[in-house]
Write a protein that binds this DNA or RNA. Sequence first.
DNA 1: TCTCTTGTTGACATCGTTGTCATTCTGAGA
DNA 2: TCTCAGAATGACAACGATGTCAACAAGAGA
Lengths: 370, 370
Amino acid sequence: MPFGGTAFVRNLKLMERITIHDVARLAGVSIKTVSRVVNDEPNVSQRTRERVERAVRQLNYRPNPAARQLGGSRSFLLGLFYDNPSASYIINVQNGVLAESRARGFDLVLHPCNYTDRQLVNEFLSAAAQLRLDGLILTPPLTDNGSLVEALAERGIPFVSISPAEATPRAPLCVKTNDRSVCAAMTQCLLAMGHRRIAFLAGHPDHAAIRHRELGYLDALSAAGIAVDRELIVQGYNDYDSGFDGTNRLLALEDPPTAVFAANDDMAAGAMTAVHEAGLSVPSQISIAGFDDVPLAAHVWPTLTTIRQPIEKMASKATELLLERLQGDTLDNQSVVIDSELVFRNSTLRPGQRRDNKSGLPPGKGKRYG
Amino acid sequence: MPFGGTAFVRNLKLMERITIHDVARLAGVSIKTVSRVVNDEPNVSQRTRERVERAVRQLNYRPNPAARQLGGSRSFLLGLFYDNPSASYIINVQNGVLAESRARGFDLVLHPCNYTDRQLVNEFLSAAAQLRLDGLILTPPLTDNGSLVEALAERGIPFVSISPAEATPRAPLCVKTNDRSVCAAMTQCLLAMGHRRIAFLAGHPDHAAIRHRELGYLDALSAAGIAVDRELIVQGYNDYDSGFDGTNRLLALEDPPTAVFAANDDMAAGAMTAVHEAGLSVPSQISIAGFDDVPLAAHVWPTLTTIRQPIEKMASKATELLLERLQGDTLDNQSVVIDSELVFRNSTLRPGQRRDNKSGLPPGKGKRYG
DNA sequence: TCTCTTGTTGACATCGTTGTCATTCTGAGA
DNA sequence: TCTCAGAATGACAACGATGTCAACAAGAGA
């Protein structure tokens, strides 16, 4: 049994309800002074501060969140709002947010919602007011809902956006990744492998940040002096089915592509199935690349060349920005970019080349994984 | 733009802070009476009750959770504890719990943790005490940590287990699925398809409920009068890699299996890759079945025959049991079973049969999906 | 030495509920 | 009519923090 044995009976202190009064008594000061120390307020002498801190440690004191909310103006509650069908995306965001917020004594309230709901804005305001949320964290596609952002800004409700379409003055805090340039890099690599007809499965039109991925693809083509063939750009909707359907349309073209670059991994998985069902082989006849590096990407056959988006890190950073903003020691506008990276696996290969070197790695480029 | 337009300016009432005093004033009663009505306490006359309820509706009053926690003995907070690598599993659990808890006015605190941590029990007790959690929800493999369950039971902390190994008297509340019988059913179907050498990729030994799946497999074999070949049962660890490795070992046998039944979908995905890499085809040469019906299952090629576990429903039910227990109107022991169902897709087929009917459906059995 | 400023500390009201207990009603039974 | 149990109601003190403001201490400047 790998567990802690029966030592759990000890440390009953954990169960006692230590209040600010206990700490004050032990340190020989008033409760207000304890409050000052705990909240890092100024005007406490060094000696007193240390005495209080010792007492806090000794009693393992943690302020009661409910009392803090009730008495004070802060709630120590953050709201995470999402409407995103990708479980791994959400879990990563949650983990990133939790890591940062918990360390700073904030708790998290989950708020799954429906971004097409007419009542969305009211739902937000109501939740923010009822629960006294100190700040909100928005994920795509909620980040791109103009009236929502406007309503929050107007009421001065602090919030941070993860991967918004644009950093607007109304949404001053955001964290993004280098969608455009990293997609250009992936496209360049496909070009370097010798592909000339590279298709692109575009993302959902409501999911604005994803459009940057298409722009990166176009950047690389134009930099390479390759004319854009509109037939090779297919509208998708971020899901497996649209990747499947779109790829079938591509395969039916008179001059089909030798590579398919999908704006996310789910669509890439759909593309893979379509290619398989057409009796073609990946990567020796058609190369496929995705975006996100969801767990699926390493678990399909062949494993998927993709782009790893550092979602958890982005979520941590977003939370950090939000908390700094709440403490007031942040400049008004702050937009942080955290880079994604290329991950080469087995779904890409020089066109027509047999899978002998067993990897779609372009010579001397990128790293291997999984 | 599919959003709600600019109507968000209305309903400013949402932002006002309506307290119990406002309601009391409007209804012409004391705050205590309002409290009684809101909490469904006895000894309020029908007329008064209606008057108060009308005032509550009229003002859109919702009790302040912080004040409730502080003043009363309940916190209206549930803790969800998990250490499970499957994102889709966790999201489903979260959604199920949220649906039920939110409707009843409870909030949820997430607690990802590490089940091998020595401090696990202390972490639990500390979280339960610090946050004043009213009840805990445990998911596998935490459900099977004896000292943890013991510690919670000893302190009278209410909790409910989802898919525990066994319903013990110490863990009186639990929700399970019919792992054993549904796995027997799947095995029977594989037998009905004509398979005689069916391998089983067993689950992680720490994840006790998964052992029931193996028992179901054995049940079906013995019911069919087929001797168990221990070579065909391979120990896995619930992850893709162990499914891959285990299947490679199976393929290297002198008399390899014609079907592989994995105790979860991740291992099944590993099995699929191993079979592909060996140059064999699924399902025409080897059939594969999984368990869980994670999104991946419908997104690999060929799509995976599996067993759909109603995780969200199980989580809702578990939350319901817990909340009833908190209200005191539940019997002491309660164990609910919610059935899983077979999902036939394209990874199973009669051995040696060509994929002409395009489905692994056994004649007249089960349903098709995805 | 006295005043004034600034830094340090504590007393006390407050937040919005619930819990306790006293009080007031009500209707049945004597 | 009177009594009295039990139902209905309200007054008021918690709960455990923060915010406000007054008091006090210490050091600077006159």
